[in-house]
Simulated assay, not measured.
Amino acid sequence: MLRYLLLTLSSAICLCSFSASAHFQELIPSHDIVSTPAESQLSLSLKFTHPMSRGPLMNMATPLQFGVVGPQGRQNLLDTLQAQQTQGVQTFNAIYQIKRPGDYLFYLEPAPYWEPAEGKMIVHYTKVVVDAFGMEDNWAAEVGLPVEIVPLTRPFGLWSGNLFQGVVKRQGKPVPFAEVEVEWLNDGSITPPSDPYITQIVHADANGTFSYVMPKAGWWGFAALLDGKKPMKNPQGKEVPVERGGLIWVFTRDMK
């Protein structure tokens, strides 16, 4: 009996430790604001990981969509992706040349990821906004992703301590009381004192609007996670549930 209780407790501890570290699809540009021609060549890093826990990285298959909505309209950037090996798994990188002033909404639809520990497929539709040369003309536009966070707060030029607000939408309609996970892209300077500090949780209101004050400088990821309406087949061909997430990344700086 004692052995059974110990095994049960051990399993519960493993499960809690796993669930405390959330999956986040990263789409991180080298600059969130382009102010000079020297900054106009962007490097974008695409990784699937647990940002606050600093890993581990998950293997990424070739994304289904990667593009940008900007002053030149909608551009398909799949051909710009370069696969690379990082910590033994596949990640991606891309280079993009800013040519005109305006807001650039980079977006990504990764290939579905099978997570056996959770028994579901994961698809995180992700975006990040880069402002070029102060135009600030289109940052609140919708890319048209199946699940998307539409910012109410301008998603660049933010100080640490600013309030970020967004609306969670599915197929263009607000999702009441959606759950939003929030993580900071840890640079190694912070060790969370316990699991609840790894992933912050907020709920949207009846209109799908959520708010969060970002307490530290760096990249912040917001992930609205919704249950998919239809199952998907896992690599073994079995139909399983789907987690469809809408993510947005924003950058903050300390006021000095």
Rank of each mutant, 00 (worst) to 15 (best):
T80C: 05
P63K: 04
K47Q: 14
F66T: 10
Q65E: 13
Q84N: 05
G73W: 09
S45T: 15
N59R: 12
G70N: 08
Q87P: 00
Q82M: 12
L77Y: 01
Q84Y: 05
Q82W: 04
K47R: 15
P71C: 11
Q85F: 02
M52N: 11
Q84A: 08
T49H: 07
H50I: 06
Q85I: 10
V68W: 08
P63A: 02
L78C: 04
Q72A: 13
G73D: 06
P56C: 09
G55F: 09
M58G: 00
H50N: 13
Q84R: 13
G55M: 11
F48S: 07
P63H: 03
L46S: 03
F48Q: 06
P63M: 03
M58F: 08
T62F: 11
L42G: 00
N59K: 13
L77F: 02
D79W: 01
S53C: 07
Q87T: 00
Q85N: 12
D79L: 02
S45V: 14
L46N: 05
L46F: 05
G73Y: 08
L64D: 07
T80F: 00
R74Y: 14
V69R: 09
G88T: 03
Q87E: 14
Q87A: 09
N76V: 00
F48E: 04
R54E: 06
T86V: 11
A61T: 06
L57D: 09
Q65A: 09
S45K: 12
P56L: 12
T49K: 10
Q75C: 05
P56E: 11
L64F: 06
L44K: 10
T80H: 04
T80Y: 01
N76S: 11
A61W: 01
S53H: 05
F66K: 09
A61E: 12
H50G: 07
M60F: 01
Q75T: 00
S43T: 12
M60D: 01
N76R: 06
M52C: 12
S43K: 15
G88E: 13
L57E: 09
K47S: 10
L42Q: 06
Q84C: 04
S53D: 14
K47V: 15
M58K: 09
H50Y: 05
M60I: 04
A83Q: 11
F66C: 07
Q84G: 02
N59E: 15
Q65L: 14
L46W: 02
P63Q: 03
L78Q: 10
T62G: 01
G88W: 14
P51Y: 02
V68E: 08
P51S: 10
V68G: 08
V69T: 05
G67Y: 14
T49Y: 02
Q65M: 12
M58C: 00
M60Q: 12
L78P: 02
